[in-house]
Design a protein around this nucleic acid. Structure first.
Length: 573
DNA sequence: CGCTTTTGACCAGCGC
DNA sequence: GCGCTGGTCAAAAGCG
């Protein structure tokens, strides 16, 4: 994060500059350092309250843990407010100032008294150097804290996304979100008013906002349609939605990768452009943006499951627009696009596994730009959340395995070491593997009882069902999540991310979730889903339940720096 | 008649 | 530069 690193670096540079001159050092310590720190921390605090509060918490926690300066201890009981945080920092620095001032006093005395007392000056110099050393250490600690705060902040982002995806699904777990602060609370309030819309605008990839037009799709008819699409979106998206989007972007940090949906018709047709380099709305860092562009072309969510049906029922209406024979697979790959709204950029590919043709592989890409029925909402939430988590660790980096572990621990905590990394996928892909059902016979339900069935022309099984609340489904994990992120060097989660995620998990976990019952639930639900042709909807609900509420399984974490989504509309036939 | 599906062609990216 | 591959377009056909 540029903002954060810049802030931490500012303090360090200030200290280094101070080291350059012994003569002015003390005065600078008195005058400049507190100012620098104050400025730095103020900037680092960012423009949103949540970030500031998070920092506040971490500063306090860290200082308490290590028994830092008394001034810091003074601020421990401070409430979560920016002013007090600033006061904390300033107080700490005043402590240093006081010390140095004391030293200076001594030096001044020495200078006025003697030029012959070199020993005293040397001692003082050593003391000052020690002081500087301590300050440097402090600076390092602050940096570390900053990283931690950043990670936690990302976790909050993700939770925020989940909350907006399913505002009605959150339960008492909100009580554990005290540290989420007013920013989040505001969003919750907005959620209350957003009954339907919120999540559809969450992008699967950061490029959603401003996908470039494909040369192909830039024809006048497409432009006209694009305008109508924009109008449609404006109609659909209430002001509340926009406000939430705005707030979300603020929380995200204003990098524009949050709600990537573009509202302006000038974006032209928003084709689903797999081969086009997506644009990002307004990434502050060009380098970062380029890196994102280079790596995050598409975030995809692939669902593998055994199904006899030609296509899984996920609550959306799809229209087939192409079919190709993919290399290495005798089964053709079908291409579908969402037809629930004009210009909806969501596509999916359906293909049977070459090895086991009973396995149906459905790959989703993009995000719906229209309200969705509960059934479709569940699946959309799943894809969006999964993809968001996939991309969530892209800011910091270590390695892909870490990210895999991160995802596993955050999304599928009850799945044991089933996360894998594939370096072969052309796009960052989250794969939800439902083919390893522990016991499909444990919990079978007739398809007609499947929830989230909705109008679905392609699959008769999807018709006639009565949508129910997604949250009513049990949480379904125990399956495999694999992450493919070749050409995705930036997509990693750091150890700090993971630590923060774990901490966040613990924080959110109300009371130790009964693992046995959870396992039973998981087994049963998994079996049901796997046996059910409409399993994806249930899966979606489960994922959403976990992510959105951090429910009894107590796991919702993850740094969510962005939402991915290739939201480019394209012309709909 | 309107919508969906089929299917061959076209285009762009990538590797050699 | 060429060929391969994935993805999309769009005309034609099918269906209710």
């Amino acid at each position: 994060m540029d903002k954060n690193s810049g802030g931490g670096g500012g303090g360090g540079l200030s200290l280094d500059a101070t080291l350059a001159s012994q003569t002015h050092k003390r005065k600078q310590q008195q005058q400049q350092q507190p100012m620098d720190f104050g400025f730095t921390l103020s900037c680092r605090g960012g423009n949103n309250d949540s970030e500031r509060v998070a920092e506040m918490d971490f500063f306090s926690a860290e200082k308490k843990a290590r028994g830092a300066a008394p001034a810091a201890d003074k601020v421990q009981p401070a409430s979560l407010s920016i002013k007090k945080e600033d006061f904390t920092i300033n107080t700490g620095l005043r402590l240093l100032t006081t010390n140095t001032g004391s030293d200076q006093s001594t030096v001044d005395d020495g200078l006025s008294r003697n030029d012959d007392d070199d020993k005293e000056n040397k001692n003082e110099l050593a003391a000052i150097q020690a002081e500087l050393s301590r300050m440097n250490e402090e600076n390092q600690r602050l940096r570390g804290t900053l990283n931690q705060v950043t990670s936690n902040y990302n976790s909050l982002q993700m939770h925020l996304v989940a909350l907006m995806q399913h505002p009605n699904q959150r339960t008492g777990n909100e009580a554990a979100d005290v540290d989420v602060d007013d920013e989040k609370m505001d969003v919750k309030q907005h959620d209350g008013g957003l009954a339907i819309v919120p999540r559809q605008f969450m992008g699967l990839s950061p490029d959603e906002p401003s996908n470039t037009l494909s040369d192909r799709s830039s024809s006048p008819p497409n432009n006209v349609e694009s305008s109508s699409t924009a109008d449609y979106r404006l109609q659909k998206s209430s002001s509340n939605v926009k406000e939430v989007e705005h707030r979300y972007n603020s929380v995200v940090g204003g990098d524009g990768r949050g709600f990537a949906r573009e509202d302006s018709p000038d974006q032209g047709s928003q084709g689903w452009l797999p081969n086009k380099q997506p644009k990002f709305l307004d990434s502050k860092s060009p380098d970062h943006q380029q890196a994102q562009e280079a790596t995050m072309r598409k975030a995809r969510v692939s669902v593998r499951a055994r199904s006899e049906a030609p296509m899984i029922t996920d609550g959306c209406q799809w229209r087939k627009y192409g079919q190709k024979m993919a290399k290495g697979n005798p089964c053709p790959r079908a291409y579908y696009r969402c037809t629930m709204a004009t210009g909806c950029p969501v596509r999916k590919q359906v293909q049977r596994c070459a090895d086991d043709r009973t396995i149906l592989i459905t790959t989703y890409e993009g995000n719906h730009n229209h309200p969705l029925p509960p059934a479709a909402m569940a699946m959309a939430s799943t894809t969006s959340a999964a993809a968001s988590m996939l991309l969530s660790g892209s800011m910091s980096s270590t390695d892909g395995l870490m990210n895999s572990n991160f995802l596993t621990r955050t999304m599928l905590p009850c799945s044991s070491s089933m996360a894998t990394i594939s370096a072969s996928a052309p796009f960052p892909t989250v794969t939800l593997d439902l083919t390893h059902s522990p016991s499909p016979l444990q919990f079978q339900r007739p398809p007609q009882h499947t929830q989230f069935q909705l109008n679905f022309p392609n699959g008769g099984a999807g018709l006639g069902g009565v949508p129910t609340q997604p949250s009513s489904l049990p949480q379904v994990f125990g399956q495999t999540l694999s992450v493919s992120q070749s050409k995705f060097s930036g997509l990693h989660a750091s150890a700090a991310d993971i630590d923060a995620a774990v901490q966040f998990q613990h924080a959110k976990m109300p009371m130790g979730a009964p693992s046995s019952s959870l396992a039973d639930t998981v087994s049963a639900a998994t079996a049901a889903i796997t046996a059910d042709p409409n399993f994806t909807a249930a899966l979606a609900a489960a994922i959403t339940s976990i992510i959105g509420s951090g429910g009894s399984s107590g796991n919702q974490t993850g740094s969510m720096n962005n939402n991915n989504n290739s939201n480019s509309s394209n012309k709909t036939n």
